[in-house]
Nucleic acid binder design. Sequence first.
DNA 1: AAAGTTCCGTTGTATTTCCAACAAAAAACG
DNA 2: CGTTTTTTGTTGGAAATACAACGGAACTTT
Lengths: 226, 226
Amino acid sequence: MKKFFPILQNCRLFAGIEGTDLEKLLRCLSPLRRHYKKNEFIFVMGEIAGSLGIVLSGGVHVLQEDFWGNRSIFAHIPPGGLFGEAFSCAGMERLPVSVAAAEKTEALLLDYQRILAVCPSVCAFHAGIVKNMVRMLAQKNIMLTRKIEHVTRRNIRGKLLSYLSEQAKTAGCGVFDIPFTRQELADYLSVDRSALSNELSKMREQGMLKFRKNHFELAEGLDRPG
Amino acid sequence: MKKFFPILQNCRLFAGIEGTDLEKLLRCLSPLRRHYKKNEFIFVMGEIAGSLGIVLSGGVHVLQEDFWGNRSIFAHIPPGGLFGEAFSCAGMERLPVSVAAAEKTEALLLDYQRILAVCPSVCAFHAGIVKNMVRMLAQKNIMLTRKIEHVTRRNIRGKLLSYLSEQAKTAGCGVFDIPFTRQELADYLSVDRSALSNELSKMREQGMLKFRKNHFELAEGLDRPG
DNA sequence: AAAGTTCCGTTGTATTTCCAACAAAAAACG
DNA sequence: CGTTTTTTGTTGGAAATACAACGGAACTTT
């Protein structure tokens, strides 16, 4: 149990809570640590929404799948990120989305009730966790707002530029890897995969970018409009 | 100042805080009460993101406008709802969106710093407000997720059905008014207005719904798939 | 190394959406 | 009440996207 403390100390949910305190707190929360294979489901749409997860390693996709298997990917959650928290925090009964491992993934599952109704001995940290939760929820809010910015562009090139320039900004430079395959990127931007490939090729022809698999290099001047 | 206490007591941000306590708390937060005409801007994209707003009456749109005047409406916030909170809570420096009054609107502006770093005398309520904030952020999160569900449908009819059936669900029946004009609905679903009108007409021809202005009546069996 | 599988790009066609322009209806205004 | 402005529906042509099908590359498995 103790061996994944170092990972948790880097997790923003526990920011401000140090060594032995974190230990106490975790005993109280009694989290479930689990491993998942690529594409394995962690939460399935329709399940009771009582718990939330922390990605320790790998990464997960939050998604919806309709009857015919059409996927829509809402978000990619990297290590240190939370998933499913909005639905527990809002008091929703059932999950409206599924969560699947995007690759080999290690995650921690917590019962949300134990976070809010925490035992007396750790009350000092309780307020801290709730404040951290506020910050993380707000950040996810912004993430979702950005995703909306991407998918509301009226054509595929617009969506791509919006998405790629955000990636470049968070990477700090025009060279970066994305956490999606082509099909997944299409499911994230909600366009057809072949049309996406097609548009990417055109953009390459026009010297706007280079790419290979999930590795991208934007030409200078793209991510700095104006 | 006191005369809008009744409105605030119904506001979810202050849930659980009663009469005189609310009074004390408000003295501490020293909010700004303001009136806005229809289409007047409350926040403008790029401003410092220090404060958040509560809609007292009317309603506001959270939106983005590009250089050419193309609008994208992210959300409609009804009375009792918060706006701008995600950006303050996440510690963002500048607002990535604008907020405009959708109609004649009354709003309260609060300084976020005062909510978190609250004065000692009201500490008992501080924790309560933060918890309320968690819940409201989580709910907005779900709102955004729903909006993503709408705009990621691959054609206009899909977007309309997704949006209208959600409205019907929240209204509790198939007859309801929406807070958008046609152009605004188009900006919300990110499609062309004329194409939207066109699709609505087709759906009416096919007996799926009736509408007049912003009043809609869905045919039975539409909002209950399966 | 061969066979199988997944991923990716390309192409052609069918469908959908955008765009611009216009007309009718409704609302706002003096 | 007549005028002006806004909102909404309609249409036709241009443009973009979806869809289906295919082949090759890269990766897995045996």
